[in-house]
Simulated scan of single mutants.
Amino acid sequence: MNADEISERASLLHHRIYAEHIRKDPALLYRAVAMLEKGIAKNGGTVGHHTWQSATIADIQQPAETRR
């Protein structure tokens, strides 16, 4: 296994942990959106801010029964 594969696996594990936390406390998504909006309001935000904002808002608006 090379360094890129190790990095990719570590990233996937982090995302799994984040998903578990969000399942236990869905309000985390609302807090995340608020933090992103604060960062965007402060300095216009980065492409990453806007991408995450779109992703979190889409997840909040998606009916629970259609989520994986």
Rank of each mutant, 00 (worst) to 15 (best):
A58N: 06
G48N: 04
T56I: 05
K24L: 02
M35G: 14
S54A: 14
T51R: 10
V33T: 11
L36M: 05
W52Q: 10
L36F: 03
M35I: 04
L36Y: 06
E37R: 10
V47R: 02
G45H: 09
D59I: 03
D25N: 12
L29D: 07
G48A: 08
A34S: 07
S54P: 00
K38Y: 12
G48M: 01
L29A: 15
N43I: 00
I57C: 15
I60H: 13
D25L: 01
G44D: 07
D25T: 01
M35W: 12
D25Y: 09
T56N: 11
Y30P: 05
R16N: 12
W52Y: 13
D25E: 15
S54I: 02
T51V: 15
R23C: 12
H49N: 10
I57E: 12
Y18Q: 15
Y18V: 10
I60Q: 06
T46S: 13
I40P: 03
T46E: 00
L28D: 00
A41S: 13
A41Y: 00
P26E: 04
A41D: 05
E37P: 04
L29S: 14
Y18E: 14
I57R: 15
H50M: 14
M35Q: 08
T46V: 02
A41R: 05
A58E: 11
A55T: 02
Y30D: 03
H21L: 15
I40R: 03
I60D: 02
P26H: 13
I60N: 11
G44A: 09
I40Q: 14
G44F: 05
A58V: 04
T51K: 12
M35R: 15
P26F: 02
K42E: 14
G44K: 09
D59Y: 12
A34T: 08
I17N: 07
A27I: 03
L36K: 05
V47A: 13
W52K: 10
E20A: 13
H50A: 03
M35V: 12
I22H: 03
I40V: 08
H49F: 05
K42N: 14
L28Q: 10
G45I: 11
Y18C: 08
H21Y: 06
R16W: 03
K24R: 11
A34H: 14
E37I: 00
H21N: 13
A34L: 08
L29C: 08
K24S: 11
A19D: 11
A19C: 08
H50G: 04
R31W: 09
R16M: 04
K38Q: 06
L36W: 14
I17W: 04
Y30G: 05
A27W: 01
I57Y: 06
G44I: 07
D59W: 13
R23L: 09
A58D: 14
D59P: 06
G45N: 06
N43A: 05
A32Q: 01
K38I: 04
I60L: 15
W52F: 15
A58M: 10
I17F: 07
R23N: 06
I22F: 01
S54V: 00
A55F: 04
K42R: 13
H15D: 12
A32Y: 00
A58L: 01
